[in-house]
């Protein structure tokens, strides 16, 4: 049993964080989010050069031949920086449905993809193709006004051109990716809250001495760490194609998304008036947290899946211990 990242994975995280902090500081993210296009297409080339687009794609196809754990690390860091661009849509959502040739094009930065989920397509305006109903559909349609302007949703046009048939999206992988993103969001919201509580003075003392403030941040820390554990568990299950991947994905996404939303809400409260402004970056984290919460099922929807697994499904058998007792004989 080893529940830690390798040195290489830690290095990847450090490099990703450094790159994103330099290239996508809060002001730049805000500028891009408020622009018509919503992102900087030139950044895609940079991600391709960093090798981030082909992390889990085999080396023969121009990828790095790594796995989903490395992708989860990147998804967490990209969310922490609120990177506006179709990385999630391409890598987390569409990639598993694509042919090896098409994956090679993704790794090379030559094709951007998304997928249709519940009738909505994330980043529709920033991708070339969409996985919809088992087919590749050209990204033609309408981008809709979306709360989270860094990840706009769109609808395919009825007459959008249909191309070759493709595979299906991988739901546990999608859920694990969203959980990893939620951890990045919660962590950043916590840092913003803590920084403010340390420096803002009222009644002659830093507000962090007041327990109504500090305990709410402590709660965010606890929930973020719990969410982190679930998200990494789910990522590992996906990477290893473990039988628990389904239930782990549902558990991790439902818990982590709720934790991220709560983390942002507590941070807004701790910041006071400034936390309620458009100018401060916090509302953008809040909106991403809510985006994550709503995509592919709110908590209650996912918990219904978990309930089925633990009350009637494979998890129930595991918990019953019947199989195990037989094994021991």
């Amino acid at each position: 049993m080893d529940f830690s990242f390798t040195d290489e994975q830690e290095t990847l995280r450090r490099e990703a964080r450094a790159f994103l902090e330099e290239r996508f500081p809060a002001e730049r993210v805000a500028e891009l989010a408020d622009s018509d296009e919503g992102w900087d297409p030139a950044s895609w080339r940079e991600l391709a050069e960093l090798g981030w687009l082909g992390v889990s794609i085999p080396e023969e196809a121009g990828g790095a031949g790594l796995g989903f754990i490395e992708e989860a690390v990147l998804l967490e860091e990209l969310a922490r920086a609120l990177y506006p661009g179709p990385y999630f849509s391409t890598v987390a959502l569409a990639l598993p449905a694509l042919s090896p040739e098409e994956q090679a094009r993704v790794a090379a930065g030559e094709a951007r993809w998304s997928a249709e989920v519940d009738g909505l397509v994330p980043d529709l305006g920033a991708v070339d193709w969409v996985v919809a109903d088992g087919a590749a559909v050209r990204a033609q349609g309408h981008v809709l006004p979306t709360m989270d302007a860094t990840r706009r949703l769109g609808r395919l046009a009825a007459e959008a051109e249909r191309g070759a048939s493709v595979g299906a999206i991988d739901r546990p992988r999608l859920l694990a990716a969203l959980a990893a993103e939620a951890v990045g969001i919660a962590q950043r919201a916590l840092e913003i809250g803590v920084e403010h509580a340390r420096t803002r003075t009222q009644f002659g003392r830093p507000i962090g001495v007041y327990q109504a403030v500090s305990h709410s941040l402590a709660d965010t820390y606890v929930e973020t760490e719990l969410a982190r554990s679930l998200a990494y568990w789910a990522a590992w299950c996906v990477a290893e194609d473990d039988t628990q991947a389904d239930v782990a994905g549902a558990a991790a996404k439902s818990f982590a998304a709720d934790a991220a939303v709560a983390a942002c809400e507590r941070a807004i409260q701790v910041l006071g008036g400034i936390g309620f402004t458009w100018e401060h970056v916090l509302h953008r984290y809040y909106k991403r947290a809510q985006w994550i919460q709503s995509f592919a099922g709110f908590g209650a929807v996912l918990r219904a899946d978990v309930a089925r697994a633990v009350l009637e499904g494979g998890e129930a058998a595991e918990l019953d211990g019947a199989a195990l007792a037989a094994e021991v004989g």
Binding site: F3, S4, E225, L226, L230, A251, S254, V306, A307
Partner: peptide, 24 residues
């Protein structure tokens, strides 16, 4: 069912947090 699923998830969160602590 919703509430019991929530408790099961909370247990997994505790369990895997302990695994992380254990590895550290």
């Amino acid at each position: 069912r919703d509430r019991v699923a929530r408790e099961w998830i909370q247990l997994q969160a505790l369990k895997y947090t302990n695994y992380r602590a254990l590895t550290a």
